[in-house]
Each structure stands twice: as structure tokens, then as C-alpha cells.
Design a protein around this nucleic acid. Sequence first.
DNA 1: CAATCCGATGGTAGCGCTGTCAATAATTGT
DNA 2: ACAATTATTGACAGCGCTACCATCGGATTG
Lengths: 343, 343
Amino acid sequence: MGRKQTKSGKIRLTEVAKLAGVSPITASRFFRNPEALSLSKRERVDSAVKELGYVPNLAARALASHRTEVIGVVIPSLTNNVFADVLRGIYDSSEGSRYTIQLANTRYSILQEEKLLRLFRAQKPAGLIVTGINQTAESRAILESMNCPVTQIMEIGDSPVDMMVGFSHYDAASAAISHILEQGRRRIGFLGARMDPRVQRRFEGYRDAMKDASLFDPNLIVTTSVPTTVTLGGTLFADLLAQAPDIDAVFCVNDDLALGVLFECQRRQISVPGDLAIVGFNDLEFTASAVPSLSSVRTNRYEMGRHAVTMVIESIEGRRPQEPILDLGFQLMVRESSTPQSV
Amino acid sequence: MGRKQTKSGKIRLTEVAKLAGVSPITASRFFRNPEALSLSKRERVDSAVKELGYVPNLAARALASHRTEVIGVVIPSLTNNVFADVLRGIYDSSEGSRYTIQLANTRYSILQEEKLLRLFRAQKPAGLIVTGINQTAESRAILESMNCPVTQIMEIGDSPVDMMVGFSHYDAASAAISHILEQGRRRIGFLGARMDPRVQRRFEGYRDAMKDASLFDPNLIVTTSVPTTVTLGGTLFADLLAQAPDIDAVFCVNDDLALGVLFECQRRQISVPGDLAIVGFNDLEFTASAVPSLSSVRTNRYEMGRHAVTMVIESIEGRRPQEPILDLGFQLMVRESSTPQSV
DNA sequence: CAATCCGATGGTAGCGCTGTCAATAATTGT
DNA sequence: ACAATTATTGACAGCGCTACCATCGGATTG
């Protein structure tokens, strides 16, 4: 003790080992499996590490061990608020751990996804988190050939590549429609933008719920492949009104569209919920303070991110979760926009 | 040609070199500096790479070269829409390049920032992008000791660590206030949440503009350190009304707050812009379709991300930009919420 | 035509760490 | 007390690539 690192040379594991009076390999084990060391050596290495301010060289570690401590995350969009929340959960959960998050963005392109997955496979990540359950056959094959835990997020289905965290978009949409029907509304419009597989599932939930009630009508439906915005909500709603002027409710596949509809109603002096009920999806923060407050379906996105990372890490470290499929469910948030006016 | 890789062994650079009939080091140069190869060898290596499906081992490369191809990005928040746009620019710009983005989130903690910077320094990134210009002395020292290009984003100032891309929050806020004053409003409230350095600068812009007009009054100011939300906008506005019932305008440090104010006005039947003008900041998408549409200050966030990456990469590759400071400016978006009612 | 230079190529020697397996010390059962 | 077993520890080799020279042929020059 009392020695200082003054030489120009950087500190390698060897230096730490020398100072601690152990072999390099023992020092190495200190990081990977400290329990395997005797208490005395562990303490000696520990203080040597601190004294020298040693930082492991990750490249060398990866090269020697044929492993990395990277968890790959593949999401389709960075713009979408929804993924921001998931990402926050992912980064928060990874923080305490030794693992690093490597983010990749497919921009909703299937080809891009395949490319990215191939890239990830080449880098041998410790784990992988991918969005959705509708990978192409090719992508799925890559995922299955990947020699690491994989968690699919955002939705759940029958045949996970490995693990899944999400909820049923179909059920969530059905629940929303049931709620609107219970309010006595009959002409329920559907507004959808960027019809990715999950939005598609919400549509199916809507469609089947309407069919079950014998209220299905193609005129009630307006969709587009354009990315979602608040402004788009207004535009689509205008289209919907043109197609079906007698609607008394609208189900929007996300809250941005719902807000756009609300604004458009204000513009056209359509009373909400008097003339029209609105229900959104995702329960973004603003829904609660809109006037009238917007009903929505709460999805546990932050938790989804957290769980996904936790499951992957546990799995990497040999504690694979009992249940590979985790259903985080949803909560219907009934607010003013879909209930009788209380004034 | 016509040979197939069937052996179990993975493809290393050596295999590529053998197939191409060159030495490994020449094959290596093919990736780093193809111009240095003769055309014939370049073609031979190229086809060997393709035939074998060779993928470089990045860990080995990093270990041997003492460099990585990672650009670190340090941002204070993942929740904030503003950073989502910047990130999109960053990821989009990095995509074509050989560089990988490594994202880290300080959650607005100075200590966390120092920790992350230290971590990055240890990993020798090829470049670094950090948020803001108010690093602690310690952080700044780390940045300066970092042996790579560094770009500070979101705002600009006098003494860049290396490079900067951003705009003047002070000027942007001043411009917003001037505009409101031009509308004949005199009692202009200030609403601020999470007073980070940039928000602080906007405040100063507001304060000085008000002082210049001899209209400054502490009662017009409501701020909090709580993270910003739409709901919070309503709450702060209620506080402001209690403090200064005679206000005729509000400048909000971001659009979420502005939307919250708008909703609160709807709730209280305060006419906008009749009784109250509202101006937000950032020009998020929804401002244009709100009723009334919300005036705001457009900031070029996506471009900021793009430029930051480009500047860093150019700099890494020896083409350092002439001007280390890039001012992306802002645009005052004047909309209904701050102009005379046109009805 | 020799002296010089330059562009293209290759040989050697690691980068810093960990996998494998052998060696040694500590512990246990009978 | 002694063999058998289990915890600790270490030696060695090598992961896949590139830095650093050395080399070599050919173009340039006077």
C-alpha cells in the first residue's frame, strides 16, 4: 500500500495481480467469479484494483472469452413515444448490471431487421431483445441460431423464440370496444395509422368485437400506413366523418390520434363525449389532463422494458425464468371522453 | 472460386487472405484503407470476403488497434421528446458509417455524468457527443483528456471542449418574449419545469427581455424542479394565476407545459388568445393542430443529431470542420395562441 | 545507368485477457 | 491416520487482428 501508479504504462490485469501477489488468472477470476477466491485473496485483489484504478479492457476480454457483455435491442422506431418508455425501462434495468445496451432501429423495415439481426449475431451478444412476434422466417431463423437468450417484447403469442414480455393487443382493443358499447354507442369508428402488426392486432380486436355485436361496418374504418401524428388524427377523423357521418364514437389505435380527433372536434364544435366518445390507446401522460380527459388503454411499457432486461440477464446467468411468457396485461382507463357528461 | 466454406471452423481474416492469395495483413488493409491496395488484389480480397461471408471480429480489431469504432452519446433523459428527435438524427446519421452508437443516460445527474464519462474514457471511444455546455470541472477535465473528437450539443457557448452544435436558448426565449410584447401584452408569465441549464438560459432570456421593457415582476414567475408533463403545465398555471391574476400571456419553457396551460384554460373558460396568449418551446408536432394552434419556438433537433454525428465522424477521419461551433438557430412559429383572434 | 524514391506487400510480434487443465492445499469420512 | 474428495490456485497457450518495420520491384531523375 502507499504505492502509486506513476509509470507511463497503463494498468493491466498483470499489474493488479502483481500488486496483489496472485497470478493474473486469479485476478481475472476476481471479476468473473469472486466467490471462487479465498477471502484473503479476494480482499488483496480488491484493494489492488482500487489502488491502481484498474479498468478491464473489454475488447481483450471479449476476444479471449468469445463472449461480450452486450445486450442487443431491436426496436422499430425511435420517434414513437411508446418505445421511449420501453427504452427507459431497458436502460434503467441494465444500469446496475455489467451489461451494455446496444440499440438498433429497424424503422419498421423487415429487411433492415434481418440485416441488423445478422449483424448482432456476428457480434455474439450476451442477450437480445427484439420487438414483436412477427419476424420473417429468415429473421426467426437467425434468432433461433443465435446462441443467447432472446426476449420478444411488446406483445405475446404462442411460439416464443425464447421468451416474451408483453400483452394482448387484441384483448386490449376488445376491452376498449366493449367499454364503448356498454356506454350505448353503436357506430364506433376505427382510426389507425402505421398499421404495424400490433396495430393490426388491435384492429382485429375491434373488428371481432364489432362483429360479435353485429355492428361491424367497413365504412367505420379509416387507416393509413403513414406514421402517426396528432395532426393525422384530425385528418383521418375528417375522412371518417365523410364516410360515416353518423358515428357516435371513435377508437384510435393510439393517443396521438385521439388527441388529434379531440382537437378536430373542438374545431368543428362536435361535443365530446356528448356527440362523440373517444378512446385512445397507450395512456400517454397527456390523456389525463386533456379537456375532456381522454379514455385510453394503459400499457405497461416501462415495466416491459425492465422485465425484458431482467429476464435476459437472469437467463444469461443461468437462472432462466420458470415461465417464458410474461403477460403484463393492460388497464382500461375510463375518463370523461367516453362516459356520460357529468355536468 | 466455387469453393464453399464447409469446415466447422469460423472464417478468420487468415482464411480470406488464403483464398485471395494474399497475406493477412493485406486483407486487413482491404478494410481499413482499400486505396492502398492494387486494384487486382483489392478485387481478389473483395470476392474472397463475399465468398466466405467473412465478418470482422471487432473485439480483436479493437484489441490490436487500441481503437474502437464506437461513438458515445451522453444525454440527460430518455423520456423527453426533445432527445428522442436528437437521437433519431444521431442514429440515422451513424447508420451508413462504420461507427456504432453507445448511448448513456445521466438522468440529469451530474455525478452520473462524471461516472459515465469516466467509463467512456476507459473504453477509448472513437468520438463522443455530450449534452450541454455546463459540465462540472471534473467532467470537463475528463472530456479534455479524452483522446477523441467531442461534440457538445443542444446549445452553444464560448468555450467548446472541441466542437458544438446547437442554438442560443437565451436568444430563442428573447425572441419569443419580443413577439409577445409586440402583440401588446404586458403581463407575461413564465412557466418552467426541470430547470436544467438550458431551461435556465431560456429563463434568462425571458428575464432580460422583460427587464428591458421594464415589465419584470417576480410574481410572474413559476418554476419547479419536477420533470415536465402536460398535467404539470396545468398545475403551474393555476399557481401562476393565484400569484398574478392579471396576466395576459404565458411563456412556457416547453410545449408540454403549454398544452397543459391550454387545457387548464379550457377548463376555466379562459379564452386563448383572447384573455391569454400562450407560447411554448420546441415546436413539437401537436402544437400546429391544437385548438387554438400553439405558438412555439422551433428547434432543429433532428438536424442537431445529424450534424453532431457528422462532425464527430469527419473529425475522427481527419477532416475536422473549419468552424467548430455550429449554430442551428431557431424559428419562431407564430400561431393562433399568441395572435389576435381572426374570427 | 546508378542513385533515389515511392507505392505495394509481407513477416513478426504482440494487444490484454481467459479457457483448459493440471497442481496443490484443505477437508472429509472411516 | 490415510485415502478420497473438494476447494483454490496457477501455467500455458492462444483468441483474431493490426502496428511496426522490412522488403521489393518499378518509376523517376540527372
